[in-house]
Nucleic acid binder design. Structure first.
Length: 415
RNA sequence: GUGGGUAUGGCGCAGGUGGUUAGCGCGCCAGAUUGUGGCUCUGGAGGCCGUGGGUUCGAGUCCCACUAUCCACCCCA
């Protein structure tokens, strides 16, 4: 048998209704915040992610699905959503629209890494990106979208953690200070961190190796290295969040795994799991070939969200409801049932009928299983008399109705 | 990439120290005096016991490899 590819999943039955609910809430919230949807391709030139996400990131170094097509183009299945949106923003000259541009997406995303609960190779990411604004209020607004969404989902005990990585200038200052600091203990670092030390010392900060942890514990904080403007920006973000009534804590250890972040970075954490993470990325657009453009956004894995919701609320098993089941007996009744069912469906009634010519008993069992409100059985005598018994399944109560008016009566009862 | 657990009909599981036709629960299908569900009873379908090697007269059961899956690490969403 040909089975599922590692790290992929079929979503159906109760699970798919849970997804639909979640997606509906996402779309609704975005609509109220004035954020429009964008659908970008799954494949992009590899170069976009190498430049956008950052060469030193784990994503680019070992987790991308990259291939060459028959035109010798080097392509990659998107490993995150932001780079594609940045590309689209530049490509379509969106900076000519009313600024800032506010976009969201819900899309399959791919990373070739080891699987675990709530972590697939093909996963689905919801993201919000606001491009064309450098303002601190924009950071706060984006954070407020995420906060509103998590609240709407009913996720318990969510904690917002924020930090600032500063602008490239602050960052380079900090890198220098950090490098000096770590350099003294270079020998004790894990092999990965030695490499990180050369390319991007910031990433040493979130290494979980014990040997590295000990060194990092006393490392200077990024926040101490922010210049006046960046400090002011970060302070303003905090002031607005406070004004909005959004609680947060400052965590100088948050660096995020993607290189494009500048200034504000944030994470929403529940039960020790990061449900949602994002930040400002003022250099990404330029990096991808556009004009310098401020931008801020966040992303969220739907699989992880579903997992957390299941854990907190229990499994969601919703069976699609049916209004009426049209049973039948004999050839003529069977034919009549097919026609009546379609009439009802066209009238917006959730109707179903027997299509496999089973016994009436079996049909009733089926009607019960699919959870129908009403049922009726059309046979020779019904066709002769022009009447039929309408049965309410829950109570078992039966009413005699006219067959010719059955359609109208059901429409009334079920609307 | 590293370490550990698991792998038996659609789902959940049982199958002491290897031995003949591989079981159970749920589900599915069909019956229980003629055309009506939910409870109960009866019957039926459905598995080359993850894949490939090996040990043996004989392996679901032991050994090895591979694959998948779960957990932890790593990283992130």
């Amino acid at each position: 048998m040909i089975q599922l590819v590692k790290g992929t999943k079929d979503i159906f039955a109760g699970e798919v209704t849970a997804w639909q609910e979640i997606e509906k809430k996402m779309r609704n919230i975005c609509q109220t915040f004035g954020i429009g949807e964008i659908r970008t391709p799954i494949i992009e030139f590899t170069e976009l992610f190498v430049r956008g996400v950052g060469e030193t990131t784990d994503i680019v170094q070992k987790e991308m699905y990259t291939f060459t097509d028959d035109g010798d183009r080097c392509l990659t299945l998107r490993p995150e959503g932001t780079a594609g949106v940045a590309r689209a923003y530049i490509e379509h000259g969106m900076h000519n629209q009313a600024q800032p541009t506010k976009l969201y997406y819900i899309s399959p995303t791919f990373r070739c890494e080891n699987t675990q609960a709530g972590r697939q190779r093909q996963f689905h990411q919801f993201g919000v990106e606001v491009l064309g604004s450098y303002s601190a209020a924009q950071d706060a607004e984006v954070i407020s979208v995420a906060a509103a969404l998590l609240e709407e989902m009913g996720i318990k005990d969510v904690e917002l953690r924020i930090n600032s990585l500063g602008c490239p200038q602050c960052r380079s200052n900090y890198n220098k200070i950090l490098r000096d600091f770590i350099g003294q203990n270079l020998g004790k670092l894990c092999p990965t961190c030695k490499e990180r030390f050369e390319k991007n010392p910031l990433r040493v900060l979130d290494c979980k190796e014990e040997s590295c942890q000990g060194i990092i514990a006393n490392a200077p904080s990024v926040l101490e290295c922010l210049n006046g403007e960046c400090m002011e920006h970060f302070q303003k973000v905090q002031d607005i969040l406070t004004e909005m009534g959004i609680a947060f804590t400052i965590d100088p250890k948050i660096v995020r795994g993607l290189d494009y972040y500048t200034r504000t970075v944030f994470e929403f954490v529940s039960d020790g799991l990061t449900v949602c993470g994002g930040g400002r990325y003022d250099n990404l657009i330029e990096e991808c070939g556009g004009k310098p453009t401020g931008a801020v956004g966040f992303g969220l894995g739907i699989e992880r969200l579903v997992m957390i919701l299941e854990k907190q609320k229990g499994e969601i098993t919703e069976v699609p409801q049916r209004d009426v089941f049209i049973g039948s007996m004999g050839e003529k009744g069977f034919l009549k049932a097919q026609g009546l069912t379609l009439d009802l469906r066209k009238a917006g009634i959730l109707a179903d009928c027997d299509t496999v010519e089973r016994s009436v008993k079996a049909q009733m069992k089926y009607a019960n299983k699919i959870g129908t409100k009403y049922s009726l059985v059309i046979g020779d005598s019904e066709l002769e008399n022009g009447t039929v018994e309408l049965k309410e399944m829950e109570t078992g109560e039966k009413t005699m109705i006219s067959l010719s008016e059955a359609s109208q009566i059901l429409v009334q009862k079920c609307k």
